[in-house]
Amino acid sequence: MNRIIFIGTAGGRGSVFRLLRRSGGFLIYLSNTWMHVDPGPGAFVYLHQMNFDLRNLDLVVLSHVHLDHSSDINAVLESSTDGGKLNHVGVFAPKEAFEGKNRVILPFLVERLRVKGYFQEGEPLYYKGVEILPVMKHTHHGADTYALLFNKRILYVSCALYEDRMLAKYPKEVDVMIINTTLYKKTKPIDHLSVDDAKVLIKNLRPKLAILTHFGWEFLTHHDPRKVAREVEEYTGVKTISAEDGMEVLL
């Protein structure tokens, strides 16, 4: 059965590096393919604690190269290729993840990949029955960041500054919309989405299910994400839940 498994739900420097919650992104299982999205700090260890055999992983996906999204990618790749013995793993990511001063993947691991794909807005990438469409490119604190659509069913809205053009670029009525809702309220200029931004996206795009995740320090220390999800659902009329560490959603 297709599913999403949230490895960790902390977002941004404060909550991730104070370990208010786990980080590490999430797994998606679609079309008999396992994908790991944004393997941030702790992902490698948490996957083993969850008894997930990383050799079953087919694809690693990075929305952008910031540390809270990418720090464990090398350990994940080394484990999923069984130290280079296996050659079935691919990586889809912004080009800067592979090369240049901001690259996050070690060169010897790039050489072991079965496929590598660079995200470009509007140009889909394919591997093992999975289509990943970068529906929109965002600038997020200097990094190229992409909102990603998986098999036309799951929309992942990664870290970004809200823009009205999201409402035109993003698909409507997807099965699941995962939104990195790092802020409860935006009190200063910062390229992250707030609860108010999430309300606008959900109300206009009307997914069947909205999932809030990637919570920042202020969010987690001053608010209950479950109550916030209810607040969003009451406003939008769309079923909304807040992700928990280790939570599994069946599709």
Rank of each mutant, 00 (worst) to 15 (best):
K186L: 07
K186G: 04
L167E: 12
K169C: 08
L161V: 01
M166C: 09
Y184F: 13
L183N: 11
K172R: 15
V174N: 04
E173A: 10
I154G: 04
T181N: 13
M177P: 09
L183M: 15
C159Q: 06
V157G: 08
L183Q: 14
L155T: 07
A160C: 14
L183D: 11
A160P: 06
Y162E: 14
Y170T: 00
E173M: 10
E173L: 03
L155D: 10
D175S: 13
K172S: 10
T187C: 02
T182A: 05
V174I: 06
R153D: 02
D164W: 06
L183G: 12
K186I: 07
K172T: 12
I154Q: 02
K186D: 04
Y156R: 10
Y184P: 00
K186F: 02
L155W: 04
L167C: 09
R153P: 01
C159L: 03
Y170N: 04
Y156V: 14
T187A: 07
I178A: 12
E173S: 14
A168P: 00
L161C: 05
T181W: 05
S158K: 02
M177G: 12
Y162G: 09
T187D: 13
I178S: 08
M177A: 11
C159E: 13
R165D: 09
E163L: 09
A168D: 14
K185A: 13
I154S: 03
N180Y: 06
I154N: 05
V157P: 07
K152S: 14
E173G: 06
K172F: 04
Y156G: 04
T181Q: 07
I179Q: 10
C159Y: 03
A168V: 10
M166T: 01
R165K: 07
L167K: 12
S158Y: 01
L161Y: 02
S158V: 06
V157T: 08
Y170E: 00
